[in-house]
Structures are given as C-alpha cells and as structure tokens.
Write a protein that binds this DNA or RNA. Structure first.
Lengths: 333, 333
DNA sequence: GTGAAAGCGCTAACAA
DNA sequence: TTGTTAGCGCTTTCAC
C-alpha cells in the first residue's frame, strides 16, 4: 500500500505540515530534519498523490493536445516535439484526436477539458471553431493562424506559408518555367490557401500573365491529385514547360505519379513541387523539391509558449509567433 | 467560477448525497427529483471535478501509453487506434515517449506512473525492462511478445511475425528465386529477429541450402540498408536470382534504392520484400511487396484488453493474443 | 521553525 | 428514498 505524508510524518516524528513543507520547498525546514524526512520518503518510496494535490491547489499538471491525425507525418512530428518539451517539465500530455472534424474539436474543448487540463494546445484546428476555446479561460496555444480577434488568452504559432510558397514560385521562375499550376486543398483548408496566395502573388508580381497560372482545389490526397494531373496532361506541350505546385507533399506524391504514367520526365519535361517536407519526400524519385514546414520548431515553440503562459499567468506570453519556412531543393523542379 | 455539487444541491433543495446519487447513478432517485437536478446541472454547466473524484475513489481515469516514437508510421497507427477505442470510454490517454530507450521506459514506469494512471499500455518495449512493470500491480498490456514468465497482471498482444516472414519466403520460392538474403535489425531487436527466424525456417524447410541464405544485422534505417545492399551487389549474377527480405519497410526502401543505382531492375533482376506495410510503401516504385503488420488490430485489441482488465479486475482478461499477418503482394518480388 | 486544523469536491456507509 | 457525515491526501493559514 502506498505511503502518504501521514506515514512519513509518523515515522519521522514531525507533523504532516513539516513534511509538506519539505515537499513543496516553500518554507524553511531545519536541514537535519529535512534530510531525515527526505530519507524516509526515499525509504518508503513515497510519491505524492497527484489527485489530492490537484484538488487542493486546483491544478492538474496536464496539458491537452488536440491533433487532427497522429498518423499524419507532420502532425506526429509536431506532437513529438511538444512531448519532448513538456516532458521536461512537471506537466504531462493528454492526447486527443479530433479527426480534423470541427464537431470533435468542439466536443473535446467543451465537455472534456473543464477541470482536467491546465492548458490546451490545438494543432491546426478548423478555423471557425477556435472560438470555442474562448469560453473557458484556460491558456490556449494554437498551431495555426489566428482567424478572428478575441480577447481570450490564446497564443498562435504558425509557419510563414505565404513566403514559403513564394520561394517555390521564384525557383520555378529561375529555372525558366513558363506555365503554372497550383493545386490547393478543399476551399476551407486555410493553410493550403495561404500557400496558394503566396505562390500566385509571387508569380504575378514577376510578370507572369494570369492566363499562365491555373489554380485548382481538390481532395488533398494521393489519388485526388493524381487524377487531377492526369487530366491536366491531356495534349500537354512540353515546349512551354509546366511547373506544378501542390500545396502538400502527399498530394505532390500523387501529382508526380501522373507524368510518370504518361512517359513524361521530371524535371526535364515538367516540374513538381510540394510543401511540408515529409520525412518520406526525400525518398520519392526524383527527390521532391518542397518547402519545409518547420514541424520541430512549431512543436517546441508551442510547448514553450504554453509552459510560459501557465507559469507567468495570463497575457505575459507571446501572442503570435511566425516561423520561417525554408526551401528544400531536390530534383523535381 | 465552476459550480460544485454543493451549488447544485442548494439550488435544487436537496442534499449533496442525492446529487451525487444522480451523477453516479448507483442509487434510485425519484424521477422528478432526478430530472430537476439534471436540469440544474445542465443549466449551470456543471462538470464533476475529476481530481476530487479521483482522490475519493482512487482511480484516475487515465491510461498511460508508452511509445518508442510517435513519428514512426507503425507506432502512430497503433496509437491512433488505441486512442480511438479509449476515447469511447470514460478514460483518457496520457502520452509518454520512450525514444526506444530502456532507461526512459524504466523511468516512466517507475516514478511517474504511480498514482497517475490506472493502466499502462507499452508499445514494443525493450524486452528486458518489462519486468519493471511487475513491481506495481497496475494492469499492463504490452504490444509485443512476452519475454519471461511473470505473475504480474500483464497481457500481451502481438503479430505473428514468424508466420508472416514465412509467407514472404514462400512467395520468393514460388517465383523461382534461388538465392536469399535476410536483413534484420540490431541483434537485440526482438521482433526483427522473429521475422528472420521465420524466413530462415521456411526456406530451409523447403529445401534451400544453407549456403544460399545469408543473414545480416544492421542499423535498421534507410541508409544502413542501402549501403549494405550496395556491397552485396558487387559482382552480382542475375542468373541466380536473389531475393532480399528486409525485416522492416523503411529498411526495404533503402535496400530497393541500391539495385536502382546499379541499373538492376526490380523485380526482373532482383526481388525486394519488406515487412510492416507502412502507409507509404504503396508509393515506392515499384510498389513494395511486404507483410502487413496489423497495426490497427494491434491498437484496438490492446485498448480493448486494457479496458477489460480495468473493468473486470485482475486476471479476468486475456493473457496473450496473437494476430495474423497478411501478405501484401505488389510488384517488388 | 514547527504544529494544529480547516477544507478542496466528491463518494459511500450509515441513519433516518 | 433521502440526508448526515466522515474522510480520501494534500496545502495552507494561523498559532505557538
């Protein structure tokens, strides 16, 4: 049976208050007494009862992390680095899967998180539902862009998607591409659309004619992008070399498959670029040129901001942090 | 400020005991009273204080999941399905990353998990350290094979690696391969070695001469396997067609790169098979033939067994469950 | 510098 | 059927 401070107190002939004082380290206790108490705790294998402490001081030492899909390489990378940082503190992570569904996010935020978590990290939540978190005054950090003004205690950390996509555009231009396609996700995929905007703006600002840029929205997976590009390649004229920018690596994988099927060579006949830099993208043949979503920094920063918010109280932590994205040039452009 | 049962009781003119009774649903309460109480709870947005409940009934409603690496496609797949099952119960998941390091596993099991978790799911832990969990009588399920007898309350669920590897061997034989290589992980990678055994046994039992099978242990990643196979391909004679079985998909990716570099065609000149069936393996060109590690079933089963253990008490749940692995035939053999 | 005691919100045994 | 009450393990005033 597990020992409590009472047991320690009895064995050491002190009061439970004194034992508590050495545990919390908030009041001075005579060194020799302190030592004796610590030895007894060690001896009995004492570990504080978190439930009791939580009840008393009204903290749970848990941080909720809401992820759309642990299975997505980017999400899991972010999660990994959140975990790394958090596990060095006294906090622990409670994991929630939102499936990318607003209802699930809402449900999680609403009912589940009331007393059971001291803070909440939302990974790329569906935009509209952010507002949910405003109801509860629990420190929140969102990995993603702010969507509407709020006075709730929310911080945001996100990657500079706009600029990243611009770098892709510049690369295409440098290499002499003349005709462009941008494939974005579903209409409401916010980050994908920032990338589309960045790509578009950079191209247009550099003298590309609007009719030389076509944009599409599609299901953002392998098959969706594959069949879209198959269609685009009807009557393809390689003399006006096409550069296809797909706003996510996994989609780019599908897109890259299409030219291969048609006997077109990447990057000689056509260019493909992605966004994210999945771990696996280096293995695509040819290696996928892409913009690196800074998953590691995203996770670490979000976790650190969270810890700060909890420690310093409302309003003291950064409101918004935007992280640079880096061009990863391999062989597909 | 958050309402408590006291508030509900006062507003409803009943005692806190009655309120508690409608919450826990363990004693009969007059329907009209019950309704009134429930309405009040709804109205005030009451949510039970988990810390208090935990303290009282000595349960945390948390399940610890210890994962070597969330970033690994197999692990994250398992985790996803654990989460799916657990989230349908009243339990929640606390996530721990072990980095595949025994020390970390031990540390997690030892200090952290005492009172803060009702059960523990360990995903492919390093064998020796399993014993740790025996000290605490907390329900444990291990995704992986039992290594030593113990009377602790541990259940095991794992895939039939031996048989899966055997299926790969049979496929090679069927297709007329005559020379074989098996690449396993580091010496102490238990599952990898089961696969090696299964492959070896099946081959030898079917008349393959020992000198026609070479086995290797290596760092189990892309680069390790790549350079190993590059070496193996010195003076390669395609007339005695070689079948290479790599005990994990990610290694197989590396292995498959080597023949390509040397101008050898897969599967015409040489065959490559993997094990696991990562989500990404279908995208390798040619598509990787592999044995499917049943990640979904592994996760779901482990979670269900856990829930049973917690509900039914010690010893009532299955001790050991082994799951079938299925051959996924694509184009690399 | 140390101890006594109240009380965090809840459950369950017992009384009514 | 409902209410009273003790107590889970801990922190924290407030006395001493």
């Amino acid at each position: 049976v597990r020992p409590t401070i009472k047991d320690i107190a009895r064995m050491t002939d002190v009061s439970i208050a004194t034992v508590s004082n050495v545990i919390t380290n908030k009041k001075y206790v005579r060194p020799e007494l302190k030592k004796k108490i610590q030895e007894t705790m060690e001896y009995l294998g004492y570990e504080p009862n978190m439930a009791a402490r939580s009840l008393k001081i009204n903290k749970t030492f848990k941080i909720g992390v809401v992820i759309p899909d642990v299975t997505d390489p980017l999400c899991s990378e972010i999660l990994k680095h959140i975990e790394k940082i958090i596990s060095m503190s006294e906090y622990q992570i409670i994991l929630y899967n939102s499936d990318g569904k607003p209802e699930k996010e809402q449900q999680i935020s609403e009912s589940v998180l009331l007393g059971i978590v001291d803070g909440l990290i939302l990974v790329s939540p569906r935009t509209e539902e952010l507002l949910m978190s405003c109801d509860y005054q629990i420190p929140t950090v969102v990995i993603g862009k702010p969507v509407s003004e709020t006075d709730a205690d929310i911080s945001y950390v996100y990657a500079d998607n706009f600029n990243g996509a611009g770098q892709i555009a510049s690369l295409f231009l440098e290499k002499g591409y003349q005709n462009f396609v941008c494939i974005s996700g579903p209409d409401d995929a916010q980050t994908a659309n920032e990338r589309l905007d960045g790509f578009q703006r950079a191209l247009l600002n550099n003298g590309v004619e609007p009719e030389d840029l076509k944009t599409y929205h599609t299901r953002f997976d392998f098959d969706g992008c594959y069949s879209l590009v198959i269609d685009l390649l009807e009557n393809y004229d390689p003399s006006r070399k096409k550069g296809i920018f797909v706003c996510s690596d996994i989609g780019a994988w599908g897109a890259a498959e299409a030219p291969k099927k048609k006997g077109l060579k990447i990057p000689n006949d056509i260019g493909i670029a992605g966004f994210d830099d999945n771990y696996y993208s280096r293995f695509l043949c040819p290696g996928l040129t892409t913009a690196q979503n800074p998953a590691k920094e995203l996770g670490e920063t979000a976790a650190n901001v969270m810890l700060n918010k909890i420690k310093c109280g409302e309003g003291k932590a950064d409101k918004t942090i935007v992280l640079d994205v880096k061009l990863i040039e391999r062989e597909s452009v």
